[in-house]
Amino acid sequence: MSAFRDAGHLLRFAGLFVLAFIIFLVVRKFVVPKSFGEYGHYRGAAIGEIAAHPAHFAGHQACEACHADIADEKKGGKHAHVNCEACHGPLGKHADDPASVTPAKLDTAVLCVRCHAASVAKPKNFPQVDAADHANGVPCETCHKPHNPALEAGGAK
């Protein structure tokens, strides 16, 4: 015991360290979120929180559940694989409550040109028109039905 004969003041100091460490551990238990480290060095519950965000696009499956007639109309046409909300915009609210939220009428003068305006930069095999040249101001939907744009339904262009 001779080594510790005059070490009383050091032991008190060591005791203080141990106490501080225990306080650290206790505070840490309260401060660190419970799911931290569940999957890695992050808060595991954050995954669930991000997954719980509301969706604004309903998805074409939801549209087709009610609008089967439009889905049939699109079938086989050039726009068969263009999803509803690509043109109609995000309509999740309409899908949740079809009675009170009705989608706005679309303007083909804006929408058609958005994709089909002629540009050298676009892929060559994509159908493009110079809008002014092509129709002399006649609205697109006069000749082309947006859901199945071929000139005669089912027929060749």
Binding site: A55, F57, G59, H60, Q61, H79, N83, E85, A86
Partner: peptide
Amino acid sequence: TKGLTTACCEACPT
């Protein structure tokens, strides 16, 4: 996580 595709894929016409 709900079985839908992303908004960008949903809206991509081509």
